[in-house]
Amino acid sequence: MDSIEHQDHPDRELLEMLQEAEAKVEQLRVELDRRREFRRQMRADEAHEGTDEEVERLSEYLEQAQINWQAVRKFFQSAIEEYRADDAWGSGRPGA
C-alpha cells in the first residue's frame, strides 16, 4: 500500500490536502456540537430560571393547594352571569 510519507508519492499533495480538510471538518463538528450544547443549556437555564426560588415557597403553595369552596361558588356564579350577559371574563366582548 502506498504511503504519503514517501517523498515520491504521486498524489502526496492531494492526500495532504485531504487530511487537512478532514481534520478541519472534525474541528468544525466539535465546534458545532459545543455551540448546540451551549444553546441547549441556555434554553434549559431560561426554562428553570426562578424555579428554585419558587420551590422555596412550597409551604405557601401547599396552603393554596386546597379547594376554596367560596372561590368555586364565585367561579360558577360569575360563569353563569357572564354567559347570560354574553360578556366572557367581564371583558365587554362576547365569548372573548
Binding site: 367561579f75 360558577f76 360569575s78 360563569a79 357572564e82 354567559y83 366572557a88 371574563w89 365569548g95 372573548a96
Partner: peptide, 9 residues
Amino acid sequence: GAKNKMYVL
C-alpha cells in the same frame, strides 16, 4: 377556559 368560563363548567 381562559376564553370563556362556561367551557370549564
